[in-house]
């Protein structure tokens, strides 16, 4: 069974329809890249799945459970929505780290607040917090940031900030990790370190959805690629095949523009 399934998703802003019926599915441990020119709706798709926008209609299923159903008349309350949200981690283009917390606390803040809702929190507080702390340190070590734990975001390079934000997203153990153009706000020489991290995560079979402009990277790291154009999926297929042998004219035109 697919870990993520999106069925006929629509999204309009006023009269402007940005997503015109998107359907795809993703297997556990696979990496899906979404490519397409600006305005094709790929970021909106990501934002609809991660609840930053509410889709107009369609269905989103995680492990077979509908976490969003446009037909449903039941309005999800804030708590339900929050639970569903925790299926996903999201890495933003602009990092969006919390500037007043140091690196370690950026990563531990959400898990600490979340732990307070555990029933055994009061009894095992010390142990729970120690576990959260240890886990955050392990994640940050993996990101190559062990020596930056007490640095504040403003003291870090863009690449380092983005690595912190990946660790922050992973600290809650999401089932699927989403990346919204993770290297677009970085200087070219810094994109490499982020791509390396994502590649390592892919090797560990982390399920990921990546919106990206890095074609070579997408081809290499993903199992499957979806090409969006004008709010629809114009072409999709296995990563290597899609990039090397595009079938539609639109994708051919897009790829030739990118490689220029």
């Amino acid at each position: 069974m697919a870990i993520l399934e999106v069925r006929n998703l629509h999204k309009s802003f006023g009269k402007h329809e940005v997503l015109k019926g998107i359907s795809f599915s993703l297997e556990k441990g696979n990496v899906l890249s979404i490519i397409g020119s600006s305005g094709s709706g790929k970021t909106t798709l990501l934002r609809c799945i991660t609840f930053l926008e509410t889709a107009t209609s369609g269905k989103i299923l995680v492990d077979g459970d509908a976490i969003f159903d446009g037909e449903s008349t039941v309005k999800p309350n804030a708590k339900m929505r929050r639970e569903k949200q925790l299926n996903f981690g999201l890495v933003f283009q602009q990092f969006n780290l919390f500037p007043q917390y140091n690196v370690l606390n950026n990563v531990t803040l959400a898990p600490r607040l979340r732990a307070k809702e555990r029933e055994d929190y009061k009894q095992n507080k010390k142990q729970i917090l120690a576990e959260i702390d240890a886990k955050a340190r392990t994640l940050l070590e993996k990101m190559g940031l062990s020596d930056k734990l007490d640095f504040y975001p403003c003291q870090l390079s863009g690449g380092q900030q983005q690595r912190v934000s990946i660790a922050r997203a992973m600290a809650l153990e999401p089932k699927i990790l989403f990346f919204d153009e993770p290297t677009s706000a970085l200087d070219p020489e810094l994109t490499g370190e982020i791509l390396k991290v994502i590649r390592e995560l892919a090797d560990e079979h982390m399920t990921m959805v990546i919106v990206t402009h890095e074609m070579t990277f997408a081809k290499e790291v993903s199992d499957y690629i979806v090409f969006m154009d004008g709010g629809v999926i114009a072409e999709e297929g296995a990563a290597k095949e899609l990039i090397e042998h595009p079938k539609t004219e639109r994708l051919q035109a897009f790829l030739s523009k990118i490689s220029d």
């Binding site: 804030a78 949200q85 933003f92 969006n96 780290l97 919390f98 500037p99 007043q100 959400a110 997203a169």
Partner: peptide, 30 residues
């Protein structure tokens, strides 16, 4: 305060109150 701060709070499962007091408030004060 950039909208991204609220969104980061939201995707990390923070409640609106937690996002305001733990994330936004000190930035506003500054």
């Amino acid at each position: 305060i950039p909208i991204g701060q609220y969104e980061a709070g939201q995707v990390l499962g923070l409640t609106k109150t937690q996002t305001f007091f733990r994330v936004v408030l000190l930035q506003v004060i500054k």
